[in-house]
Simulated assay, not measured.
Amino acid sequence: MAKNFVIALGREFCSGGKEIGKMISERLGVHYYDGDLLREKSKELGIDEGIFEMFDEQPTRSFLYSIMMDPYAIDNAVNSGKVIEAQRRVIESAAAEGSCVIVGRRADKILEDKEDINLVSVFIGADIEDRIVHYMENNESKEAKDAKSVRRLIERKDRERASYYNYLGDGKWGRAGNYTMCFSTSKISKEKICDTICNYIKTLD
Rank of each mutant, 00 (worst) to 15 (best):
V6Q: 00
V6Y: 00
V6M: 01
I7G: 00
I7T: 03
I7L: 07
A8Y: 08
L9A: 03
L9K: 04
G10R: 03
R11P: 00
R11K: 12
R11Y: 13
E12P: 05
E12D: 11
E12T: 09
F13K: 00
F13P: 01
S15G: 06
S15V: 08
G16M: 04
G17W: 09
G17T: 05
G17P: 01
G17M: 10
K18C: 06
K18V: 15
E19L: 10
E19M: 11
E19I: 09
I20P: 02
I20Y: 04
I20N: 01
G21L: 00
G21A: 03
K22I: 12
K22V: 11
S25I: 03
R27A: 05
L28W: 09
G29C: 01
V30M: 04
V30E: 03
H31K: 08
H31L: 08
H31S: 14
Y32T: 02
Y33H: 02
Y33L: 02
Y33R: 01
Y33N: 02
G35N: 07
D36H: 09
L37N: 06
L37S: 08
K41V: 07
K41A: 08
K43I: 07
K43F: 10
E44N: 11
E44W: 11
E44K: 06
E44F: 14
L45K: 03
G46M: 08
I47F: 15
I47Q: 03
I47L: 12
I47M: 04
I47R: 03
D48H: 13
E49P: 10
F52Y: 15
E53F: 10
E53N: 13
E53L: 14
M54L: 14
D56L: 14
E57W: 03
E57Q: 10
Q58F: 11
Q58L: 13
T60A: 10
R61D: 09
R61H: 06
S62R: 02
S62T: 05
F63I: 09
F63L: 14
L64A: 05
Y65R: 03
S66V: 09
S66Y: 15
S66W: 14
I67D: 12
I67S: 10
M68A: 10
M68V: 13
M69G: 04
D70V: 05
D70F: 15
P71D: 05
Y72M: 11
Y72N: 14
I74W: 14
D75C: 06
A77M: 10
N79W: 05
S80F: 15
S80V: 11
S80L: 11
S80N: 08
G81F: 14
K82P: 01
V83I: 15
I84R: 05
I84A: 08
E85I: 08
A86P: 00
A86Q: 07
Q87N: 07
